[in-house]
């Protein structure tokens, strides 16, 4: 029978909790930057001229093909060699995760925009709206409501992806759990605790987003 000696957790819980803070902070920043960039890319992919659409599509599809670990490692180790700019693991992680998650957001936005019924666009045109007006006032608001469940998954995907930033030594929760597990020789307790903590963060997040969506779904139904 395994001996559940919890001394490592008792000693290091503050350190680990600080890691949870870093995880949540990095996640929040990443979600904010990715939504901004991703919505812009998604909208431009639908409405810009081909000279912009083609490279944006290439960017999005490339990010669908390259693992986030690879982007992280490249951004942290290779990017500074190429440019001479080096900003530390946290910012490298923010940049890499943003580049990756924004592409995912852009796909969601595009699908949302394409799902708005053509009749809605005709109705907006019939009122005399200009293209930017109808995008901002009719298409995007409906698309965003429909995208909410998918945007919710962006939040949980981001939180999960920040754990991969442990590989470039961002002192977030995963990294700290790894450190404590290694130093204390109690990997079973520490990793199991980490499992529970991540689940306790992620499960309510997904549930909350489902709730919100159920409440606003009618706003996107046309």
């Amino acid at each position: 029978m395994f001996d559940w000696d919890l001394s490592a957790l008792e000693e290091s819980w503050r350190f680990l909790l600080g890691g949870v803070g870093v995880t949540l902070g990095l996640s929040a920043l990443t979600v904010a930057t990715s939504l901004t960039l991703g919505i812009a890319v998604g909208v431009l992919r639908c409405y810009a001229g081909a000279w912009l659409r083609v490279p944006l599509t290439f960017y999005v599809d490339s990010m669908r093909a390259i693992p986030v670990l690879v982007v992280l490692v490249w951004m942290y180790f290779a990017f500074p060699l190429l440019t001479g700019v080096s900003a530390g693991p946290f910012w490298a992680a923010l940049a890499a995760l943003t580049v990756h998650v924004a592409a995912y957001v852009a796909e969601i936005v595009r699908a949302g925009i394409e799902s708005v019924r053509p009749g809605q666009i005709r109705a907006a045109l019939a009122l005399g709206m200009s293209q930017p007006q109808l995008v901002m006032q009719v298409v995007l608001p409906q698309a965003l409501v429909r995208m909410l469940p998918a945007i919710g998954s962006v939040v949980s995907v981001t939180i999960k992806d920040t754990a991969i930033a442990a590989t470039i030594a961002v002192p977030e929760f995963m990294k700290r759990a790894e450190t404590v597990a290694g130093q204390s020789y109690q990997p079973v307790q520490v990793y199991t605790a980490a499992l529970v903590v991540y689940f306790l963060i992620l499960f309510p997040t997904t549930r909350l987003i489902d709730r919100i969506h159920a409440r606003v779904a009618h706003l996107g139904r046309s």
Partner: peptide, 24 residues
């Protein structure tokens, strides 16, 4: 395009499926 917009402002159109904006 601009000319057509001006024209549309002088015509009202009602659709079979109403096409009210569901988010407002």
């Amino acid at each position: 395009r601009a000319g057509m917009r001006a024209v549309r402002q002088r015509m009202g159109m009602v659709f079979q499926n109403f096409e009210l904006f569901p988010h407002r």
